[in-house]
């Protein structure tokens, strides 16, 4: 808008008469209203889920969640208190944590080590190997389900949390290596040489120089991986059993009786989104970077 104003000074009113100016001004108002409406439309689904999760489930048959705005008496915490007493749901919530945290840490550690090797260690066939790793980005997880299920049952770890973690780590690695190798190779060569001259071991260089300097990339990677695993449904559907299933699987099994399970589904879904949402709010910049960088998966 300021650019348009400065144009006026240069070109005078030849290009922009009073009509155009009024159009621009009212257009600005219309634009603002339009974007406010868009923002509201984008907020409404989540807001609706929140309200529904706080409503007496008996009311679901009678009317939509918006009824609760005019009848606040419909709101209650009983869904949540009932949900937190359901061991299947609380158990699956902790399963989600137990799957997500190690899967995130391991991808960062293993990916960073490999990224460092690809960026700073000399060994024959390095570039070709790196290309193969990048090439593995094309492999959709769907293709690995059957063979890995068979592999896990041969190893005797079927249905365990460990089995899900291993799967997530392996499929997180191509992207992690790709991202961190690029970032690490931007570390000044002089810094690395100096450390090596001083006799630092590669392990020391890795932990004392590479990891701290790579922190921004690592943060983005960690948030992306955390989000990916926390929100995953497909992998957990295949590899977990009733004792190790995460929240997404526990809830997905309820969607077939959507209407009658709304008292579990709505608060459960809200419970599952509140953690990534908090991460989003607190680490906005890394979050956006992580999602953007990882969108290739």
């Amino acid at each position: 808008m300021t650019a348009a104003a400065s144009t006026d000074i240069v070109t005078g009113s030849i290009n922009r008469g009073w009509a155009a100016r009024i159009a621009a001004r009212t257009g600005g108002g219309a634009l603002r209203i339009f974007l406010i409406v868009v923002a509201l439309v984008w907020l409404i689904p989540t807001f609706g889920l929140l309200i529904e999760s706080l409503r007496d489930p008996a009311q679901y048959a009678n009317g939509g969640w918006w009824d609760a705005i005019t009848h606040p008496a419909q709101l209650t915490f009983s869904n949540y208190s009932a949900l937190l007493k359901t061991s299947a749901i609380t158990g699956s919530f902790w399963n989600t944590v137990e799957i997500t945290v190690p899967a995130t840490i391991l991808v960062v550690l293993i990916g960073a080590a490999a990224g460092y090797a690809f960026a700073w260690l000399e060994f024959p066939g390095r570039d070709a190997l790196f290309l193969v790793v990048i090439g593995l980005l094309v492999v959709p997880i769907q293709i690995a389900l059957i063979p890995v299920v068979k592999l896990y049952s041969a190893l005797g770890i079927s249905g365990s949390i460990l089995s899900v973690v291993i799967f997530h780590v392996a499929f997180g690695l191509p992207f992690a290596i790709f991202l961190l190798r690029n970032y690490f190779s931007g570390i000044p060569r002089d810094l690395m040489e100096a450390a090596r001259m001083d006799g630092a071991t590669e392990g020391r260089i890795f932990f004392r120089i590479v990891l701290p300097l790579g922190l921004p990339a690592i943060a983005s990677l960690a948030i992306f991986q955390f989000l990916w695993v926390w929100n995953d449904l497909l992998v957990a559907l295949i590899f977990t059993d009733s004792s190790s299933q995460p929240l997404t699987v526990a809830l997905a099994s309820q969607t077939r009786q959507f209407g009658s399970s709304i008292d579990v589904l709505a608060p459960g879904a809200f419970l599952s989104l509140i953690v990534p949402l908090a991460v989003f709010m607190f680490f906005q910049r890394f979050f956006v970077e992580g999602v953007m960088a990882g969108s290739v998966k």
Binding site: W42, P45, L227, N231, T248, P276, L277
Partner: peptide, 9 residues
């Protein structure tokens, strides 16, 4: 914001 939310939710 919806990018933070699982497809399940």
């Amino acid at each position: 914001m919806p990018m933070a939310i699982s497809f399940l939710a």
